[in-house]
């Protein structure tokens, strides 16, 4: 046994090398010994995808990203390692799923019908850049704020007109009031609709919480916070809606009185209560407007979930 020392040292080094290589392949979720089915794809944005990220078809892990590189034309080149026994038909496409902010991204392959010939090993699969879930939420909240602001700006314009009309005696206030009511209705409608979409967004976020759940403790907290904030926004919108509904109700009363005949303009103008109520209605609307216009970003800030992470 003259070479026993050399032999033992050599064996342990060789064993370590084998364990190292196989360990990396294992943790990358690449089959340890079999060769793999390799596909290339391009994305506009990697959205945080990295080597080792899983690849899924219908939610089942079928492989892992080998590497993500930037091409010379700034497009993202991604190399995918898939299980050898898979056959991805021509016409399939890949998307990036998951939440980049949480680092739990994966590639989703949407297979074309099985009838198509399979893409050969080392072939190309089309990459579609779908917006990230959180980017979608953010985008949506910006749109919502814009809608509300637009409706309120219209209302403001109308109220200014009303104020002008009230100042001019003898003018017929009825069409103005009717118009005002229409605007208010429209505003209420917008808010009601957007309330729905906020709920939808919350629903979406809840469905991606499967990914969120893989996060550490800190992530859990921020997720809870996010959901809580989304709830707050809904509450906020609801209170705005109530204010608008109150205003509409007041206007309705005024209109009823005018329609009943005893509501001549003179009477209207002479009736101090009505005048005060009209004033307070305008005041309510205006304070809401003021709030939204003075702090145009208030709603947006609430919606800006990405800040949370």
């Amino acid at each position: 046994m003259k070479h026993s020392k050399e032999l033992i040292v050599g064996l342990s080094l060789a064993a370590a090398m084998v364990v190292f290589v196989l360990g990396i392949r294992f943790l990358q979720d690449v089959p340890l010994f079999r060769s793999t089915y390799v596909l290339h794809t391009h994305f506009e944005s990697a959205g945080g995808l990295s080597g080792g990220s899983p690849i899924r078809i219908n939610g089942v892990d079928v492989g892992a990203v080998e590497h993500v590189r930037l091409d010379t034309d700034n497009r993202v080149s991604v190399r995918l390692h898939l299980d050898d026994n898979l056959h991805i038909p021509e016409g399939s496409h890949a998307e990036i799923g998951g939440i980049s902010a949480l680092g739990s991204n994966y590639v989703i392959i949407f297979p074309a019908p099985q009838g198509n010939p399979p893409i050969s090993d080392g072939g190309y699969i089309e990459g579609v850049s779908a917006p990230d879930a959180f980017e979608a939420v953010t985008e949506r909240s910006v749109r919502l704020t814009e809608n509300v602001e637009e409706a309120l700006a219209n209302a403001n314009l109308l109220l200014e007109d009303t104020g002008l009309l009230i100042g001019e005696t003898g003018a017929d206030i009825r069409p103005t009031l009717r118009a005002l009511r229409e605007v208010t209705d429209a505003l209420a409608q917008t808010l009601r609709e957007e309330q729905e979409s906020v709920r939808q967004i919350i629903g979406n976020v809840e469905t991606v919480s499967g990914d969120l759940a893989r996060l550490s403790g800190a992530g859990t907290d921020t997720l809870a916070q996010t959901l809580h904030r989304l709830d707050q926004i809904t509450v906020h919108l609801e209170s705005s809606l109530q204010m608008l509904e109150g205003a509409t109700h007041n206007l309705d009363e005024i209109l009823t009185k005018i329609n009943n005949g005893d509501g001549t303009l003179a009477r209207l103008l002479n009736d101090p209560t009505l005048y005060i109520r009209m004033g307070s209605t305008l005041g309510t609307l205006e304070s809401l407007l003021q709030d939204l216009q003075d702090n145009p970003r208030k709603y947006l800030r609430h919606m800006d979930i990405v800040d949370v992470f």
Binding site: F20, L27, Q28, D29, S50, G51, P54, R214
Partner: peptide, 16 residues
């Protein structure tokens, strides 16, 4: 599964 999900191939080389 958990180990694979967040595995980065650079890590073992860094450790090495």
């Amino acid at each position: 599964q958990g180990a694979q999900d967040f595995f980065r191939p650079f890590d073992p080389y860094f450790g090495l």
